[in-house]
Amino acid sequence: MAVLVDKNTRLLVQGITGKSGSFHTQQCMEYGTNVVAGVTPGRGGESFEGKVPVFDTVKEARDKTECNATMIFVPPAFAADSILEAIDAGIELVVAITEGIPVMDMMRVKAAACHSNSVLIGPNCPGIITPGACKIGIMPGYIHKPGKIGVISRSGTLTYEAVWQLSSHGHGQSTCIGIGGDPIHGMTHQQAAQLFTEDPDTEAFILIGEIGGTEEEEAAAWIKDNCDKPVAAFIAGATAPPGRRMGHAGAIISGGKGTAEAKKEALQDAGIAVSESPSDMGATLLKHMGA
């Protein structure tokens, strides 16, 4: 009924005792996510909110609780190490929320992740949610509703925008995946598109990209050859000046590459309905679906 996360997800939170970590763990628990463990080195033996055991290491948490997903809120200087620790412990799904991890750190993490069985989402992302079943991340739960539309996005707040538009039109979501705004990150647009294409409960999906890199073009090429479901897209940053990093380390037009125009063209060429305005993302998909 969804991709990657559902009612059976047993969540670990790395950095559970920090300010953001504890606030958002609380929010996830209220949403109904099954949070089974937390890790903060040196705080093993404590309990979070009297409900969730805290461990010193991910290995210990894994052995004792059989957690199969982790949400990482560790500060940027230590986040790469935390991702590697999760991979080493064999956690199936690693969701890194942390913003501001140095790109050299992510280069090494990514090289290690390639040789593991873990799926990495992020970093610098809002997380992943299967509405009504499992929320891993910082997205406001109440805007989502269960349904059959997938959402993939490099941007957090822009994902909420798309979800809000869909929900307001009465259309729920199967799963929403925030893949993150850093130049080197885990799951790509194309890999997420593949999951939604293969998921029998996803009828259509929205792909939200932004300037910089060539991931949207690669996803477009894959969709063109492999996906029969209706897809809509929006690319942020059409008016961004070249050479300036637009907040996300990954959102930069350099050497004439990664422009919004080139991305829109590739997407349209793949039969994807491209929304010109961020306020029409939902409507564009629904029109394309004939809904």
């Binding site: 300010k19 953001s20 913003e99 910082i138 996005s153 490099r154 941007s155 957090g156 707040t157 822009l158 994902t159 925008e161 705004g181 939200i208 932004e210 300037i211 929006f234 942020a236 940053g237 059409a238 008016t239 961004a240 300036r244 637009m246 907040g247 996300h248 959102a251 010109e276 305005s277 961020p278 306020s279």
Partner: peptide
């Protein structure tokens, strides 16, 4: 705006609506 993607899109939609943004400003996550 909060969030880089939404901040960029806000610039885009201002242009789209016939205006001109004075800046990109993402106040960030927390």
């Amino acid at each position: 705006v909060n969030g880089a993607g939404l901040a960029m899109s806000t610039m885009d939609i201002i242009k789209h609506s016939g205006g001109d943004p004075a800046n990109f400003l993402d106040v960030g996550g927390g």
